[in-house]
Amino acid sequence: CGQKTDLEPLANQELPPAPYGATEQPKAEELLEIETLAAPQRSVELRRRSEERADDPFDLPPE
């Protein structure tokens, strides 16, 4: 069976420079991410499949 994973730079190839304000160079997965305004997420449903509520690094519970 095949296995599809993220792209990686070739041996002699570098990742693009880190954008102003970012600490590391962007990886392929980040570069292929679509901008927020370019394709607004039009899915109206709260959940599409039975999944656990992952803990969200951008929404910490009050400690």
Partner: peptide
Amino acid sequence: LDDSLEGLGVLNDDTI
């Protein structure tokens, strides 16, 4: 930062 855009208020013809 995390910036996202959600669609809601769906109409009968399934447009938001």
